[in-house]
Amino acid sequence: MNELIMICILLIGIASIYIFNKILDTFGLKIVFIIFSLISYILSFKYLALSTFHINASMLTCCISYTSLCLLLEKNIIKDTKQVIKLNLLLNIITSILLYLMAYYTQSINDTVAINMSNVILNNIKLLIAYPIATYISYEVFIYIYIKVKKLYDYIFISMVSTYMASGLIALILTYFISYYNIITLPNIIKILLSTYMVELIIVVAFAIAITLIKSKKVSK
């Protein structure tokens, strides 16, 4: 069941990229990046059990964000892409402030949901600071490495996978070590980090293969 739901989420992501790119072109890709980046932030509060792995729920949507970022860079609009990343940082900070404020409202006695919201946000208070910073740094690294790799090998598969290998790891290390130090035990942090990284890497490789195939088909036509 878990696997089926995950496939559904991935399909939603792929369909979003395709539809937005068709309708709004570059602007559409920017919108997809922002939407999925925000959803990733919200999902980063949850951890999933996938077989023996313990993974962060945001990893599926993170892959979609990386893919849309990659497609933006493929269109050679580096200045715009850098601006989108800065915009994303601002949006994440705004989200953090609003989520923090939300947790502090006095709830109604008839409300059963509010206590869960406060639990999720107030127990992850460090994540509200760590996540925007970590994602911003990782996206900056992503762009930097992507441009360098693209100059060496103009092949989307190599650029995408090699870039993710570095920037994805940076994002995960920064997020988990800042957010969960002293909250979750160190072996558990490492367990989550490695599992999430491995699964994300597999998805990114799958996406990179799909994009390469689509591109090669377009060229042959």
Binding site: I5, A49, M117
Partner: peptide, 19 residues
């Protein structure tokens, strides 16, 4: 859909609250 996914035992209390 993510709320329907099986939660991990790590941070279980927060995972359940999220769902």
């Amino acid at each position: 859909l993510t709320s329907l996914l099986k939660s991990s035992n790590i941070n279980l209390f927060i995972n359940r609250s999220f769902d």
